[in-house]
Nucleic acid binder design. Sequence first.
DNA 1: TTTCATGATTGGCT
DNA 2: AGCCAATCATGAAA
Length: 389
Amino acid sequence: MEETQRHMQSLANATMAQVGQSVVHPGIMSAPHMPTATDQQQQGPEQETRKQEIGDILQQIMTITDQSLDEAQARYEKHALNCHRMKPALFSVLCEIKEKTVLSIRGAQEEEPPDPQLMRLDNMLIAEGVAGPEKGGGSAAAVAATNAAAGGGPGQPDNAIEHTDYRAKLAQIRQIYHTELEKYEQACNEFTTHVMNLLREQSRTRPIAPKEIERMVAIIHRKFNAIQMQLKQSTCEAVMILRSRFLDARRKRRNFSKQATEVLNEYFYSHLSNPYPSEEAKEELARKCGITVAQVSNWFGNKRIRYKKNIGKAQEEANLYAAKTAAAAAAATNQHSPTGSSGSYPMTSQSQIMGQPDMFMGMQQVNGDSYSASGAQVGANVQSQSPSK
DNA sequence: TTTCATGATTGGCT
DNA sequence: AGCCAATCATGAAA
């Protein structure tokens, strides 16, 4: 992401503005410590001189800031200040006052609770395997996703392909995420160091309390966290898109295998009078075809409606399967007992035998749909089928 | 690219 | 809950 650069720039500007605020308007500079009555009462002659010295230093500071001095003189004055023996004392006093005034005002509102949205994003990223341990929830989530996408069908060869495909894409997202995160962290650290150095540098000429530095670091971190949140958000979006692509079954419709279609058609045409397989029959078909019971139900739903809509063409198919069934059953009859089952789905209703299937004619018979019904009645002619619409 | 076939989904009905 | 009908979305053939 080249966004990083932009973020960095704006962040740098924003933070420097805040740094600048305290540099340019330190407050304490223009409002030096005002001694109270009690202060004065407790002062001895020694304290009186000290006060005088502090006053001198302040006066020098004011002079430096107010006047435009030439370089050499300014350097000389600063040096004189820095070397002054009262400087540490003055600084600590100034820091103390600063802490009491400026920091106490803002201090309270900085205690922010963890952002719930950030927590949500974090949780999601961990759950999806983008954040967190490399081989942990990530692959687990991928397995779950691909399994769901496969619809539970056993032995689908492309299952593995899509599995790895999903994993590869997820890994890609993961990698980008971590690279960016690392970049942000590095930039954050660099910037923090930079600002700290700056403050340390400035602390030689103006009072800067440790708390103030802390606060500045906190501000920087907060800014960078905001950027990180954007990264997390877009990563989440990417994962969601990936997931939806892989989980949306419609997008990955695969035709059933030829063998599966054969089995289903065989059943359908041999039960034309009542093409409503029982739950057990569906399970059996599902097992045979390597698909789910729901898919079997879908198939029969589609088949019934499409058969009804297109009788003419369906009849050809019906004949085909009738002939097949006949052949299979005949073979079975010859080889085994006259009543033996061929293992396919023999016709069971009288109308089928007579070539008058009664599907959709309101005559649905209870035929049990067992796979071992009288297989001897074969060779039915289904050319004259005329299911009503 | 277009057209057809087909598995999945959805809403309404019983 | 199961089914029907319409529809969607995709695979595969033309």
